[in-house]
């Protein structure tokens, strides 16, 4: 932990009524680093992302950007600090044109005063350039995003974040809905982003995708951290075990074996019948 993390959480907790969504989570990511956030469904990954991207405020703990404590009132605040989030299913609006999607919320304008207007030509040109860079060919940048494949949409969303000068890129399950080939394309873009010095938080429940790209791994389970590991410190098997709730599973395994031997469950069934 030599350099100051670009974004950091310290002791963050979030509750929804009586539900503990996150409890005492600390983590950080530095420039040019891919930090993987792993966990099963319901582990608290989404809540964590939403705190980092300004959708939720933590009930306890703090968010720091470049060592400075911040209080995001809205996603806009986070975006303004260079924190871009690419959501799995909400990355793009299907019926909207590609260039309109690309610039949604950050539209380029020309003209002054009441004549200030959306610079459609600029938007189309930049979108076309950015698509060219990642090798996506479209006949018309105003065609609906629905005409792109899942991997292409995800890639365009990442390209958009990078274009807008993201320092931190939060990627929510960018590869989980994709086939192997499409996923590897997305993983390559992530590697390229890292080379450009962007800090990447990669959220996944796919250990193989994460291990291929990650430098460090934080495992979440039931809203709590199972620890943070450098890539050299932990094997893919160990990570997988942690994610599945290793200790818990061992207990379950022992219990089930015990069940099979003594058969209290079976006898109850028989009693029931």
């Amino acid at each position: 932990m030599e350099a100051t993390p670009i974004i950091e959480l310290r002791g963050a907790s979030k509750y929804f009524g009586s539900v503990i969504a996150l409890e005492d989570i600390s983590m950080g990511v530095r420039a040019g680093e891919v930090m993987c956030l792993l966990g099963d469904n319901g582990a608290g990954k989404s809540t964590l992302i939403k705190i980092l991207s300004g959708v939720h405020r933590p009930d306890r703990g703090t968010v720091l950007v470049e060592g400075e404590e911040v209080d995001f009132a809205s996603p806009r605040d986070a975006i303004d600090r260079g924190i871009a989030t690419v959501y799995q299913d909400l990355a793009m609006i299907p019926l909207m044109g590609i260039s309109r999607n690309f610039f949604l919320g950050r539209e380029p304008t020309k003209g002054r005063g009441p004549f200030r207007r959306f610079d459609v030509k600029f938007a189309d040109r930049v979108t076309r350039e950015e698509l060219d860079k990642i090798g996506i060919k479209v006949r018309d940048t105003s065609q609906p995003v629905a005409t792109l494949s899942g991997g292409e949409r995800q890639s365009v969303a990442i390209a958009r974040a990078i274009y807008f000068g993201a320092k931190v890129l939060i990627l929510d399950e960018p590869t989980s809905a994709l086939g192997v080939k499409q996923a590897s394309i997305v993983l390559r873009y992530i590697a390229r982003a890292r080379e450009q010095g962007i800090a990447v938080i990669f959220i996944s429940h796919n250990v193989y995708h994460a291990y291929a790209i990650g430098d460090r791994f934080t495992v979440l389970n039931h809203g709590r951290s199972e620890g943070t590991f450098e890539k050299g410190e932990i094997s893919i098997q160990e990570l997988e075990k942690l994610m599945a709730g290793g200790a818990e599973l061992e207990r379950l395994e022992a219990e089930l074996q015990g069940t099979g031997a003594s058969g209290p469950g079976a006898s109850t069934d028989e009693a029931g019948v």
Partner: peptide
Amino acid sequence: GNWIFGVGGDKVAARNVGV
């Protein structure tokens, strides 16, 4: 106008990008 399309297309996605 772009916001009108965005909000109508997906309210949550639009809010997430700062609309």
